[in-house]
């Protein structure tokens, strides 16, 4: 099974790397980060907060959107091109197939992040800023967990809706995640008993992606330390629960779909 899983994942990764869109996204984002780095702020080099904040934002948005598009395309594409039939004729279970796809998307996300991380680190060092290594590593790790949730959610959405709707909802969910957390925190006090119940349920059943975003902490790293082990373990558990739930839902819809 691990070999089969790896073969499927590898094909997703190769396809992602071959597609010019991924390069275009990485290239455009890298150019954006380099141009941020290149702006002359009164000849002052040691001002790195702005660079850190903007570069982390670009990295996160570019990778998030790439993952949503890549993951949402996987299954509809197999059905559209009818390659799913050849694959299913082989001794591969649907679970292995879907897990392989997910693993492949995650490898592509990690590939994107790796490229961006190199640009980010070179940029920070060039500007003379300090790199909070542990905090930054934690940030990248938590971002990958975000990508895992997004990828499994996109699989599920792509099985339920048409491709464009899946991409739109996936992207909006990712881009508006922080706002959703703000809204639920704020309007709770205004709501009646039933409203409060709905907000509470929503807060617990919808993943709060903002919990997996350490970009503010990393930007203002001189004032904040890395997270402790317990918090990291709790965050990992939190993310895995949602990723597993969405994966199970995607699996359910995938099984229901007639070949």
């Amino acid at each position: 099974m691990p070999l089969k899983l790896w073969l499927i994942a590898r094909s997703v990764l190769i396809e992602a790397i071959r597609r010019r869109e991924v390069y275009a996204i990485v290239l455009v984002s890298t150019l954006l980060i380099i141009s941020i780095m290149g702006i002359d702020f009164f000849g002052l080099k040691e001002l790195t907060k702005f660079y850190r904040e903007s570069a982390l934002k670009v990295m996160s948005i570019a990778t998030g959107l790439t993952v949503v598009v890549l993951a949402a395309r996987q299954l509809p594409r197999e059905f559209e091109m009818r390659t799913i039939y050849t694959l299913m004729a082989r001794p591969i279970s649907r679970t292995t197939f879907l897990a392989g796809k997910l693993f492949g998307v995650m490898l592509a996300a990690a590939f994107c992040f790796l490229l961006f991380t190199l640009v980010y680190l070179v940029g920070t060092l060039y500007l003379g800023g300090d790199i909070p290594w542990v905090l930054f590593a934690q940030h990248v790790y938590l971002q990958l967990l975000t990508m895992l949730i997004l990828a499994s959610l996109s699989f599920w959405l792509s099985m339920m809706l048409n491709l464009d709707a899946a991409i739109t909802i996936g992207s909006l969910f990712f881009l508006l995640a922080a706002m959703f957390t703000n809204v639920s925190m704020y309007i709770y006090d205004y709501a009646d008993a039933f409203g409060r119940f709905v907000i509470k349920i929503g807060t617990f059943i919808i993943p709060q992606l903002t919990l997996l975003d350490l970009s503010e902490r990393t930007t203002h790293a001189q004032s904040w330390s890395a997270l402790d082990f317990t918090t990291m373990a709790m965050l990992t558990g939190y993310a895995l629960i949602f990723a597993a739930a969405y994966f199970a839902l995607a699996m359910l819809w995938f099984r229901k779909r007639e070949l």
Partner: peptide, 11 residues
């Protein structure tokens, strides 16, 4: 046919 209208409905 492509249910693009779904996207508009989402917005």
């Amino acid at each position: 046919r492509r249910k693009d209208i779904h996207v508009l409905l989402i917005f």
